[in-house]
Design a protein around this nucleic acid. Structure first.
Lengths: 270, 270
DNA sequence: CCTAGTTATGGTCACTGTGACCTTTACTCG
DNA sequence: CGAGTAAAGGTCACAGTGACCATAACTAGG
């Protein structure tokens, strides 16, 4: 489902079986074009084949028999954005009979987060464009619904799991981390309370360094504490995300990672 | 993945494509065989074909091209247990390259809850047997891992979502609801505090009736408040579960329901 | 009819997490 | 050197919850 979703000629298998596709909802933060406020953006690809031709769709493609699901998600993500995800998790599998006109297509959808810094220099071409997550046009198939669900998951999960740092680099200030939360949740967050909560959670560790040249008190730099959040993940351990530190390398798709349900779907939150 | 999971001869599609299967982890509550305490039980089917022949596996089968995913899950659930689920939700999609020897199999796994009362008279035969969820033997394929994940999901979700009532009938006492929670979470829960929390959540409504003949103060009967919990579900509305009130009808599999990701995976919770 | 046994129900107390806010610190700029 | 600004610390009040205490309402047995 996506650029290749409804390309009968390339579709695998016999017509009497469902075709298996993998798509990914990719999130990045960039200032809004008009308001200038940090906002969630999503890269989409223009369909060049007929079913739903010309409509924008999620990056993705048919699942190669010899490729892991996560790997396929990371690969197509890299192919369309030139980025490597800093967070990648299975979202849901959509398989309604009528979601794709013509043939039965079951799509295993993943959602990913990429670093804002990287997203800025991400590839954008005639057939790849970034859209503000809350201002999408009519997309191909049921992709509007899928993105809506992914957005819900992101907003829900960012409140109880340490994933916001995935939008940032290796080190960051609490103000930057807070800005990510504010952008995702679309609401103001008290700086002092945010600091208190984050420090108490133990998800970040002060590096000891500070950022200079800020026209005001220099903020401390923090680093994500990978040893802590393991608890909130499922019993099956974290899903290994290929190349956590995207080096901006184009086509930086990762090799076959070992996909395991972390707390994926779970995250429903309360 | 399951009774039919690795049955090459019945496998759909071309050998060069991944086969799509649907399996379901079914939970029911019954007293433990030795301790007598309410415990989680899971029905499994014995594999009669070769890959992993004789090993116990999750109920399921290949996905028919013209059947909805949820429907397939509910159908196989009914075929093996003779029950209809009171709760059914997509769990995760497993697709590791080596999870099934021989061919690539991608399984969309669902998890379901059935009423205890029904579960008692559920079918059990030479090839279908119920096991205590925490005391499983070595199962076929990666089913042990899948169940472990489903168990984690159930235990996690029961703490923040109103799903415990799915194990009970239309009306129940708070003691019964509490017993479900205690069985699932495997720990004692204070009756008074439980009552306070449940009543505050508004997920149940007193019917006004009480249960007589209890040798002590007669408990009130409550009914699940369907209008409340809609909030904790995802933005895509609840997944319609076929026949909520299982009438114990054998083969009571439901017709094609409209599958939509509720808060499925999400549930990760905090 | 009266008492013991048992669970249903109602409350209280203490502690924790969190939103709303106030104060002080530490830089840069003019 | 004073003003401006965000970082960092701290206080207060309130909601939620685990631990517990007390009373209510039946049944079973004298």
């Amino acid at each position: 489902m996506t650029g290749t979703d409804a390309s009968p000629e390339r579709a695998p298998g016999v017509a009497s079986d469902a075709a298996l596709a993998v798509s990914t909802v990719i999130f990045a933060l960039r200032p809004h074009e008009t308001t200038g406020r940090m906002t969630l953006w999503i890269p989409l690809v223009r369909r060049t084949r007929d079913p739903q031709k010309e409509l924008w769709a999620l990056p993705g493609g048919w699942l190669p028999v010899d490729e892991e699901l996560v790997s396929a998600a990371a690969r197509t993500l890299g192919e369309t954005t030139g980025l490597a995800p800093t967070y990648l998790e299975q979202l849901y599998t959509f398989g309604e009979l009528e979601r794709s006109p013509g043939r039965r297509v079951v799509s295993v959808v993943y959602w990913a987060l990429v670093q804002s810094a990287e997203a800025e220099r991400a590839a954008e071409s005639e057939n790849v464009r970034w859209f503000v997550a809350d201002e999408l046009p009519l997309l191909a198939f049921d992709h509007n619904r899928i993105i809506e669900y992914a957005l819900w998951r992101l907003r829900t999960k960012v409140e109880y799991a340490a994933i916001a740092h995935a939008f940032l680099g290796a080190t960051f200030t609490l103000a930057e981390l807070r800005e990510v939360h504010e952008a995702v949740l679309q609401r103001h967050i008290d700086p002092a309370n945010f600091r208190r909560t984050v420090e108490a959670s133990g998800t970040v560790v002060a590096t000891g360094e500070v950022v200079a040249g800020t026209r005001h008190r220099p903020p401390r730099l923090y680093r994500y504490n990978a040893s802590i959040d393991l608890a909130d993940r499922g019993p099956l351990g974290p899903e290994s995300v290929p190349g956590t530190a995207a080096s901006g390398a184009v086509g930086a798709a990762a090799s076959a990672p070992s996909s395991t349900p972390s707390d994926s779907h779970t995250g429903e939150q309360r």
